[in-house]
């Protein structure tokens, strides 16, 4: 088993008296897409900045590709790309010129520079506007230009901070497809977001941040099972029966929530609609409807944070 690509132990950042990140442990293996989830201000960006060495941790240690980002920042940054939240480019320069500038900073040889830039721009479908000033680009195009920069640099690890914030659904889908393509090429990705659907569709694992701590880390499925108390949600409408009192006989059923006079919300580990139907009719109740759906990440997420607040 090789060592993790990113390994943070007891990562802590304090500004004055307030602790923004409090003892965070993260390990990311090669080829994984890990999502950092959490509300704004939970410490995601600060954690990212400490991982890539742009901010010094108050305590704890980070190893990236078996290097210390504080001692050997150039070697780390040569292999780790960072796409900041709402990435900025020089508006007066063209997309091509912007990438040439970072290519020179990255020490890419001038002979292969333009080939690599154009290949990267093709990959993110921006080759037709390479000669236009970035000032004319839309928000989605800027984010894609940011991804092109990472592709051009041929890095092993990419850290994306809120890559889809402020994008319309179509641009978001395009961006997600590109991120998936990056991962398919063997890139390891760390993505922070407060948009759960995004993370659900592409991440192999998620880490939930709350007030500077990681509340949960694992696969999306494990998260919905553990935190949402079952991966199935069944909406039941029935009359002449008290469902809350008699579902104990079905072992797969977790929580039962009484919504109003004749509606219940049942959580279960698998689809228990037949059992429920038999149960209700068996008790002499009138079954009106049964609707099952998988608990979404955002339901689990909201539940997770409401549990913490309680």
């Amino acid at each position: 088993m090789s060592r993790p690509v990113i390994e943070a132990v007891g990562l802590t950042k304090r500004y004055g008296k307030s602790t923004v990140v409090d003892g965070v442990n993260i390990a990311v293996d090669e080829g994984e897409i890990v999502g950092l989830l959490g509300p704004n201000g939970a410490g995601k960006t600060t954690t990212i900045l400490m991982i890539i060495g742009l901010t010094e941790p108050s305590a704890g240690s980070v190893r990236v590709l078996d290097l210390d980002p504080l001692r050997d920042p150039l070697a780390v940054k040569a292999q780790v790309g960072y796409l900041p939240d709402a990435v900025g480019f020089y508006d007066g320069m063209t997309g091509l010129e912007n990438l040439r500038y970072t290519a020179r900073l990255g020490g890419i040889h001038p002979d292969e520079m333009d080939d690599r830039i154009m290949a990267a721009l093709r990959q993110v479908h921006l080759d037709h506007v390479a000669g236009n000033r970035v000032g004319t680009y839309s928000r989605g195009m800027r984010q894609r230009l940011g991804l092109a920069e990472l592709a051009m640099r041929q890095i092993r690890v990419a850290v994306l901070d809120e890559p889809t914030s402020g994008l319309d659904p179509r641009s978001t889908d395009e961006l997600l497809d590109l991120i998936r393509a990056f991962a398919a090429d063997g890139m390891t990705l760390l993505i922070s977001s407060h948009m759960l659907d995004v993370v659900q569709s592409i991440c192999t694992r998620v880490a939930l941040f709350n007030q500077g701590k990681i509340g949960f880390m694992g696969s999306v499925e494990k998260f919905t099972n553990d935190v949402a108390g079952g991966s199935f949600q069944i909406d039941v409408a029935a009359r002449k029966i008290d469902l809350s009192a008699c579902t104990d006989v079905i072992s797969a059923v977790g929580a039962v929530e009484h919504l109003d006079e004749e509606h219940w919300k049942v959580s279960a580990t698998h689809d228990v609609r037949p059992e429920l139907a038999r149960l209700i009719t068996g008790h002499g109740g009138d079954l009106l409807s049964l609707q099952a759906h998988r608990a979404s990440l955002s339901e689990a997420y909201n539940r997770f944070f409401s549990q913490i607040e309680q």
Partner: peptide, 8 residues
């Protein structure tokens, strides 16, 4: 932040 994330 993008410039500082380059290897410089």
């Amino acid at each position: 932040s993008r410039i500082l994330a380059q290897p410089i």
